[in-house]
């Protein structure tokens, strides 16, 4: 259902699905505005984390005579500020949310609607991010004043950043939605979530730019999906990658998006059946 097939009927189906988005976006915007204060509070964590690692690495760089692994403190600042923006735009909370949805039977409603529930999730996610940019952007300005980042932006890198970011968002969204479906099969999702987040943390470029990781860890990060939703768009924007690396990155993003979409379309029906069979 999610993998596009180019028949006339499929195109019509996708057009009709897209028509639902304005309404979804409006409603989710409303509820997000309602909870703007609490939403802003959640941003504190998102802002603080890159600040922490930026500080740690700047401290290391200074103690190593000004730079470590090709990054000066100013370049770390640029990296982590961009990462803050990218991570804000690509993160999802579906893995936490599914547990509640299954437990409290919210899926019963979703299953009654003649549209795949992932679309409403995407709308909710996008509008949340749009609203919370009002917190992120001023934070970025303040961080800029505090940490003096050094950006060497060239137009090509910025142009390439946009598709890298969009694909990163889609990749992470589909991937986490896939994992979230585990909630249909087990009540132990926190164990799964915790495992995912621990690995994601290390391999996505949040603990350190992956070029600073020990080489075998960096190699693993190079073909797993985590890096391509966070660190990769950042490094594209900062022009730290060669043309080869960028092209290869786009390719890997596409592969993982396809895999995740295929898994969702296969597993969703089974999960839904499982859910209705258990009944809650």
């Amino acid at each position: 259902m999610l993998v596009p097939t180019f028949t006339w009927g499929a195109v019509m189906h996708w057009l009709r699905t897209l028509q639902a988005y304005p309404a979804f976006l409006r409603i989710s915007l409303l509820s997000n505005l309602q909870y703007r204060a609490s939403g802003a509070i959640w941003m504190i964590g998102s802002i603080l984390e890159p600040v922490v690692y930026l500080t740690v690495w700047s401290t290391v760089a200074r103690s190593q005579g000004g730079s470590v692994g090709g990054y000066t403190p100013e370049e770390f600042a640029a990296y982590y500020m961009t990462l803050l923006l990218v991570n804000h735009l690509t993160f999802t909370w579906v893995m936490h949310e599914f547990q509640y949805r299954v437990q409290y039977g919210h899926f019963s409603f979703a299953l009654l609607r003649p549209i795949h529930p992932i679309h409403e999730d995407i709308a909710l996610n996008l509008s949340f991010k749009a609203v919370q940019l009002a917190v992120i952007l001023p934070a970025l300005i303040l961080l800029g004043l505090a940490f003096h980042p050094r950006f060497d932006l060239d137009p090509l890198s910025v142009a390439l950043f946009l598709p890298a970011l969009a694909m990163g968002f889609l990749l992470r969204f589909l991937f986490e939605w896939t994992l979230a479906m585990a909630a249909f099969w087990t009540t132990r999702v926190t164990a799964i979530n915790q495992s995912y987040f621990s690995v994601q943390m290390l391999l996505s470029g949040r603990v350190a730019p992956i070029s600073l990781l020990p080489s075998w860890v960096a190699a693993a990060a190079g073909f797993l999906p985590f890096y391509y939703a966070s660190g990769f768009p950042v490094e594209v924007a900062l022009g730290r990658l060669s043309t080869d690396q960028v092209l290869r990155g786009f390719g890997i993003q596409l592969v993982w998006i396809t895999v995740a979409a295929a898994v969702i379309s296969l597993v969703w029906r089974r999960s839904a059946r499982k859910f209705t069979a258990v009944g809650s």
């Binding site: 690495w57 290391v60 103690s63 190593q64 470590v68 692994g69 290390l202 350190a208 020990p214």
Partner: peptide, 12 residues
């Protein structure tokens, strides 16, 4: 994370 940091430095 600590291990990664100390792979680049001796003291923090």
């Amino acid at each position: 994370a600590i291990w990664v940091v100390f792979s680049q430095t001796d003291t923090l």
